[in-house]
Design a protein around this nucleic acid. Structure first.
Lengths: 165, 165
DNA sequence: AAAATTTATGTAGTTAACTACATAGTTAGC
DNA sequence: GCTAACTATGTAGTTAACTACATAAATTTT
């Protein structure tokens, strides 16, 4: 874009900037999934991959390790189960827990999904010009926000400004 | 987070990673706005700032220069007008167009908002460790996606993979 | 000058995240 | 062993973006 106001604002609009990029990417991913008539939602890929690695685990375990709030995972797991991609069994020791795992249907589909995931990966690598150092910056942001939340930082800066007046 | 699966996936989950960071930031910004009982929505700041610069312009002009779809702007402008922060008049030459500008109420509030925006800015600068080079990477991603959409890139990679089989 | 196309705005419904709240089961403290 | 606190899951409603469609006005084509 020629006159991109958000870009012009620089770091001031960092969150809008990040949101805009990720929104564009997920929109385009969704578009191709639709075109190819894939039966799964784009945002299920993290759950598929995580369960490939972990095999069996509970909803809150998934939420914690993906860094999402648990209701987000509850909703995705519900949809994936309805489509037959997940098996759920109750934990015998702790009856509150649901033990989630991939179904046979999921395991059969995964090779096809992997072609899709790998293509997406290549497209990402391409837009990054094979330079992965942006990840270092993202790691650092994550680290800083873990240390002290953005809410706290923002609030402190605000209170400082008020005191100076 | 100790075991962060999204981080572990690296560039493969770039879009989820970007989304997660921006979501966290906007959530925290919203939280402080609520705490301080500010009468405006966090995502209005781009419109306020843009109209400070442009003074008068149409909805689609705003949409184009912020890089959003027009209905997003329509909705925000509607809410801001209802709260009395925007004036709208019909363009005499082109009766389809609405000419939008900041109201007196908006101009009176802006000094207070600027304290907030500046504090947010400082917090962002702080999490970036005063190193703005992440912006260069984002600029580059924007540039690449402008050249060739992510949808096209992803599709090409997918078709290539299919042909190789 | 009529018809076709394009542009500006608006509306309705979708998505993927969230918070706040509810409920049931588990663990800890006394 | 009862009560209180915590944990796992689930539900309802919110948010900010979107697409698809609708309509009216302006512009272009024929």
């Amino acid at each position: 874009m020629d006159n991109d106001f958000i870009k012009e604002l620089g770091y001031k609009s960092l969150d809008s900037r990040l949101k805009r990029v990720s929104d564009r990417m997920s929109r385009d991913i969704r578009k191709l999934y639709k075109e190819l008539d894939v039966d799964i939602e784009p945002n299920w890929y993290l759950i598929f991959m995580f369960l490939q690695k972990k095999e069996k685990c509970s909803i809150s375990y998934i939420a914690e390790h993906l860094g999402y709030a648990h209701p987000s995972i509850v909703v995705i797991v519900k949809k994936m189960s309805e489509k037959g991609y997940l098996k759920t069994e109750q934990d015998h020791l702790d009856k509150r827990k649901q033990i989630i795992s991939l179904s046979d249907k999921a395991n059969k589909l995964i090779p096809k999904l992997e072609i899709l995931w790998n293509s997406c990966e290549k497209a990402i690598l391409d837009i990054l010009d094979n330079d992965l150092s942006i990840l270092t910056y993202l790691d650092n942001i994550d680290l800083k926000l873990e240390e002290t939340s953005f809410h706290f930082r923002f609030k402190q800066e605000y209170l400082n400004s008020k005191n100076k007046l």
